[in-house]
């Protein structure tokens, strides 16, 4: 039993608080500890991409990819060795696909922050196919 919970029960036995107040305090305490345990959960290690056919989909293709986040970090660092003219071609190809991203501007010191933000990423798209992108 936690110290806070003990104190609440002691206050109840001493008559400092009534049953309703004790109940309210205990529920608040359990909510707080629940949130804290959620935040202190395991650090995500993998980026997972899942594509599954929906009920109306004619295409029955399934994709299940699990990529270690460390590999993404290392891959982005390796990408800095790509010659600038080749990076320009990559950016052009991305532009043609409608993706406006310039990977030459990503500095090594920003990589950790960039990959770190992926931890909170969750994408759910439900159309003909169900697409899920999340970290686990």
């Amino acid at each position: 039993m936690s110290e806070e919970r003990k104190k609440i029960l002691e206050m109840l036995t001493e008559g400092k608080i009534n049953v309703e107040e004790a109940e309210r305090l205990l529920s608040t305490l359990s909510e707080d500890t629940g949130t804290a345990s959620d935040n202190s959960g395991k650090t995500p290690r993998y980026l997972r991409i899942m594509i599954e056919p929906g009920p109306e989909s004619k295409n029955q293709d399934r994709v299940n990819v699990r990529v270690p986040l460390k590999l993404i970090r290392a891959g982005l660092k390796l990408a800095s060795f790509i010659p600038k003219d080749a990076q320009g071609k990559v950016n052009e190809a991305l532009h043609e696909k409608g993706i406006e991203a310039d990977f030459t501007n990503i500095k090594p010191e920003n990589l950790d922050e960039l990959v770190g933000q992926l931890n909170d990423l969750t994408v759910n798209i439900e159309s003909k196919e169900t697409v899920r992108v999340f970290c686990e």
Binding site: Q60, R62, V65, A74, G75, K77, L78
Partner: peptide, 23 residues
């Protein structure tokens, strides 16, 4: 600089899983 980064890339590949099912 290439070699350490390349080895790190190989080192981090553990856990990679790709599963694609098509027609």
């Amino acid at each position: 600089y290439f070699f350490p980064v390349f080895f790190r890339l190989i080192w981090c590949m553990s856990g990679l899983n790709v599963d694609i099912q098509t027609k």
